[in-house]
Design a protein around this nucleic acid. Structure first.
Lengths: 344, 344
DNA sequence: CGGCTTCCGGCAACCGGTTGCAAAAATGTT
DNA sequence: AACATTTTTGCAACCGGTTGCCGGAAGCCG
């Protein structure tokens, strides 16, 4: 039955050693129930003995399943070398989730211009995609539509309410914004500024702002558009936005920043302008990046459920692949109170 | 010549449309010079028109080249969810280097116990491996030997002088340690403590310590073993090591921490003990993680050439794969002076 | 004990490119 | 114009598992 083992072991070698046909080896190693317990164990033992590993390429080629998903990051392209720390934390979570599901993880950073929408699924590199990116959704929404059209399995991290096409997994930004607002109100603040884009191009930020506004209205305060300043998620953007806020002369006693990096930049601007934290201005950030606990004072912030996020993204993609029902894609957040916002 | 296009496009479809044989298509798309310019262009145009992508599995299966490398992280397993920020920065650099070389990058976090030494190369998932891990090298040196024996292409990040088997890429830790020492000496410090393991199980840290000792000796100071305290690279470890140092009663006016995380933990301990920085104690860290500039005072540290590191690791693996000469595997470092160490 | 279902395992086709070798075409030589 | 050379292209085998289908063996039943 075939030739004797030679070179790197293949399933044929095992078949030879076990005295069975090669397809039987394939079935046995995958735990196919149409192989008797006895032969399966025999085959598995031999496989272990000769250090056999299934060739992933051959397997994927025939079965059209790679058991791999691709994680595509993309940023606005401004910062070449720095990676947003929040993404990195997310990466850890996704990696672990993949490992738990026995999936390999392919990683790539993308520039907007690339033809990433076909590089992975089409080349059969991956069974599904996870898309991760802050920045202006409008810039790549066209590609996302394309993914949907061609039936690509994917999930993206974003704001749950912008779930028009494709499966979006995200934190409850609206609720988080409300929580932040209520916290600051409870601290006795009334004039709460928001640093971060609030238009539809940046739905995550916008929903955080919406939540803040909801909280304000509930407290009988009309949100003041003069207290909202655009900022992308960079420290410098936070610095500039806070400087603009200060320069505007509009009185304020609190800042809700759309991200910790923005908050950190804002704190720098406040310190430069002689405003004390939290005395003159309470500050709340978003993300709870590692650096948030190291600022002076430590930054109050909102923590997203990162462990849950990775698992949820992976599970969402898997569900599409296997035709199961997708999980709840709505993740809770938690307020972490630190020194930058004084308790009432 | 064959059947008409149907379903997802294959090279056969293109062959049909171009009126050539399928192997010619394969050759043309890879730029094989044995295809005439005219036909190649015709084929490439058709491929673009019908959105064709080479099936990576089929290609890899036959050619035995995946154009993929696997990046294996491993940590001591203590911290489940936090990833060392230094690694994350490295990841960014490696990702970019892979992209530049047209390689895919497979990522995995490993626990020591796993059979990672065969999961990738053997399964033909990747052409080569990059190993990244702080921690006790003794724990996995056996597996590394195994990799060498079976001819696996790999490079690991580590200390250049421990390059006994396999290609090790790393910073010039010895030189960096000397630089740190000389800087502290120039600041007028004489009793410089080192926080970090200094034994052969942690060669990177040990070489940093050795460099410090060299600098001390050059200045006519005998290194005092009582000023060296073990610490792995976690904030808590730094806190504990610094606490032990303070409790030991040995006088000291400077700390050189083997990593920024250790330094940050140490600064916390110093603050808790009422020692001022840099007044009583100057502190120098290592890595220049983002948080380093946010501490109070900002942390003087040593920056490794991360961009170069990723490129060098990738290039080293590629060189092995393609039988070229490996690049220089010795990377320079740079001292970043901040507030935690007072100028002389 | 013949007939029927169930369980196991084999046969052969197949996934979609890549590659060694040889034939055909184009170009050069004398 | 006949022959040597060099380019282009095709043929067929191959990479190493996976899968649909079928047949033999074993188990079940009246």
């Amino acid at each position: 039955m075939g030739r004797a083992p030679t070179g790197r072991p293949t399933s044929f070698d095992i078949a030879y050693l076990a005295g069975v046909s090669q397809p039987t080896v394939s079935r046995a190693l995958r735990g196919d129930k149409s192989v008797s317990e006895a032969t399966r164990e025999r085959i598995q033992r031999i496989a272990r003995d000769i250090n056999y590993t299934v060739d992933k390429n051959a397997s994927s080629l025939r079965s059209q399943r790679t058991h791999t998903i691709a994680l595509l990051f993309f940023e606005d392209g401004t910062d070449e070398n720095l990676i947003n720390p929040f993404f990195l934390a997310m990466l850890g979570s996704i990696t672990r989730a993949c490992a738990n599901h026995g999936l390999d993880l392919l990683i790539s950073f993308q520039r907007m211009e690339d033809d990433w929408h076909m590089r992975y699924q089409d080349a059969k590199r991956a069974d599904g995609l996870i898309l991760l990116g802050y920045g202006d959704y409008a810039l790549y929404s066209a590609r996302i539509e394309q993914l949907v059209e061609q039936g690509t399995h994917f999930a993206r991290w974003g704001s749950i309410r912008s779930d028009r096409s494709g499966a979006t997994v995200g934190s409850d930004n609206l609720g988080a914004g409300r929580t932040a607002g209520e916290h600051l109100l409870a601290c006795g603040r009334r004039n709460i500024a928001f640093l971060g884009h609030a238009d539809e191009h940046y739905p995550e930020f916008a929903h955080r702002y919406d939540g803040l506004c909801d909280a304000l209205r509930d407290a009988g305060i009309a949100p003041d558009p003069a207290l909202q300043f655009d900022a992308l998620t960079h420290e410098d953007a936070g610095y500039r936005a806070a400087s603009a806020l200060i320069a505007s002369g509009t009185p304020f006693d609190a800042i809700f920043a759309a991200s910790d990096l923005i908050a950190i930049g804002a704190m720098r601007a406040l310190a430069g302008a002689g405003r004390t934290i939290p005395g003159d201005v309470a500050v709340v950030g978003f993300d709870n990046i590692p650096a948030a606990s190291l600022t002076t004072p430590p930054l109050t912030t909102i923590q997203q459920d990162l462990a849950g996020a990775g698992e949820c993204l992976v599970e969402t993609v898997l569900a599409q692949i296997e035709g199961r029902d997708p999980p709840e894609r709505h993740l809770p957040t938690r307020l972490i109170v630190r020194g930058s916002s004084a308790p009432a």
